[in-house]
Simulated assay, not measured.
Amino acid sequence: ATFSAGTLALMLYALLWEAGNLVNLPDKRIGFYNFCLWNETAGRLQCLEYEHLQMMGISLPGIVIARVCVYTCLVFSIFYPIFVAHVKCTEETEGWKVIIVILIIKTIILSGGLGIFLFQTTQWIQPSDFTGGFLALLGSQTLLLLHLLEQAGMPLRQL
């Protein structure tokens, strides 16, 4: 339950509170819905439209797929505790296999979505640029992996 709650809290923070922004600095805001860079002439952040992003070599379908993957993981995380409670109450042995499959799917789509997004935007992001939203998604990924190991029966003290 701790891993699920932590994952959900971190994902809510990253995707709702931080609005999906992985970089949120005074001179740069880059996320699943924003791509803003400092404009020297205007003296402010300028948010670019999709046409400009495509001219810069950023794939619109790639960004959309990344966004869908990451936000789908959030939806799975919201409903996951309800499913776990159902399996515990009914004591269905097949249900535990489905729980592991759901954890695997969540882990894959979160890492896949984040990876696709970073691949598209790596030219404009330095590792030191990442802010809380990115760190929260990394924390979510870590908790998902630990939860998967726990559900698969591997004692975490062996790690």
Rank of each mutant, 00 (worst) to 15 (best):
A1R: 03
A1W: 11
F3L: 08
F3S: 04
A5W: 08
A5G: 00
A9E: 05
A9D: 06
L12P: 03
Y13W: 14
A14P: 04
A14G: 11
L15C: 01
L15Q: 10
E18D: 12
E18M: 14
N21S: 14
L22K: 12
V23W: 13
L25A: 10
D27H: 09
K28C: 03
R29Q: 13
G31V: 10
N34I: 05
W38S: 05
T41W: 00
T41F: 09
R44V: 09
L45R: 07
E49A: 13
I63R: 11
V64G: 10
I65P: 08
A66Q: 06
A66V: 12
R67I: 05
V75L: 15
I78H: 09
F79L: 04
Y80N: 00
Y80L: 05
P81H: 05
H86L: 15
T93V: 12
T93R: 12
T93G: 00
E94K: 11
V101E: 06
I104F: 07
T107C: 10
L110V: 02
S111W: 02
G112L: 07
L114K: 07
L114R: 10
Q123H: 13
Q123L: 10
Q123F: 03
W124P: 08
F134H: 09
L135R: 03
G139C: 01
S140F: 08
S140W: 06
L143I: 07
L146D: 05
H147P: 04
L148K: 02
L149G: 01
L149Y: 07
A152K: 09
A152H: 01
Q158P: 00
